[in-house]
């Protein structure tokens, strides 16, 4: 589904990712772990098409199509979802109305008719129940005044509504208490199926107790220095990143 080939990328002329190759097939969950500054978030940013980040060389394809040439909205319509580490607050934009706009943008792209607010509300109500989110979040402005946990839940709600092919969750677990983490992880698990794929970017092993990855990759100084199965995360937890960075 997603093929990342020898990608070098950075910000403001500084190379942060120094040659990453990664293949993600449908049905798979990949966890990308690494210390601060290793390039985890940069990877998420280039997959979602952030305008400030620059890909210097290499290629990224989604189902054979060049992802890097697409505008962020086109990537979204093709089924890429980015769960932000720091979701932005947008005062004045009603959360439910925004979710309906995003949902309808996808429907129009797929040649379907737009849903009116009432029909959409049924879907939204159902998805919110699944995620254990209070209905009051419908009427509030997008992320405005939400706590950290509420913002992350709102990201997962958007993912549930948009049903992406590939979701990239950038440190969705950081800053969450254990209850919120459980809700977020349960939500993600309910959305997993054999047709979609997930990239979890995380600093901590804790999330992986709740969302079992198929593969774990360790990123350090812009490169994947070790890949393995989920047991690798436990080793990292026990021994710390130094164990890998000093031996490589």
């Amino acid at each position: 589904m997603l093929e990342i080939k020898d990608v070098r990328a950075g910000f403001d002329g500084t190379e942060i990712i120094k040659g990453i190759t990664l293949s993600v097939k449908k049905g798979e969950v990949h966890a990308i772990m690494g210390p601060n500054g290793s390039g985890k978030s940069t990877l998420a940013k280039i997959l979602s098409g952030h305008p400030s980040y620059e890909v210097m060389s290499g290629e990224v394809t989604l189902d054979g199509q060049n992802l890097l040439e697409m505008e962020p909205e086109k990537r979204a319509l093709k089924g890429v979802f980015m769960g932000f580490q720091y979701p932005v607050e947008i005062p004045g934009v009603n959360n439910a109305e925004f979710l309906r706009m995003a949902y309808n943008a996808k429907r129009i792209h797929e040649g379907q008719e737009e849903l009116d607010p009432l029909d959409f509300d049924e879907i939204l109500t159902e998805k919110m129940k699944v995620l254990g989110m209070e209905q009051k979040y419908k009427d509030r402005s997008l992320n405005e005044g939400f706590s950290g946990g509420e913002k992350k839940k709102n990201e997962i709600l958007q993912m549930a509504i948009l049903e992406p092919k590939l979701a990239v969750l950038d440190e969705t677990d950081s800053g969450l208490d254990i209850d919120a983490l459980r809700v977020v992880a349960n939500g993600v698990n309910k959305l997993r199926n054999e047709n979609n794929a997930l990239i979890l970017i995380t600093h901590y092993q804790r999330l992986l107790e709740y969302i079992q990855p198929d593969f774990v990759h360790v990123l350090s100084q812009g490169k994947i220095i070790k890949s393995g199965e989920k047991g690798l995360a436990l080793e990292l937890e026990a021994q710390g990143y130094d164990w890998l960075t000093t031996t490589h």
């Binding site: 505008e71 962020p72 909205e73 979204a76 979701p87 925004f98 996808k106």
Partner: peptide
Amino acid sequence: EDQLFYLKTRGLST
């Protein structure tokens, strides 16, 4: 720009 990018990643045109 951050708000604009956020909305675009949800499939909304510029």
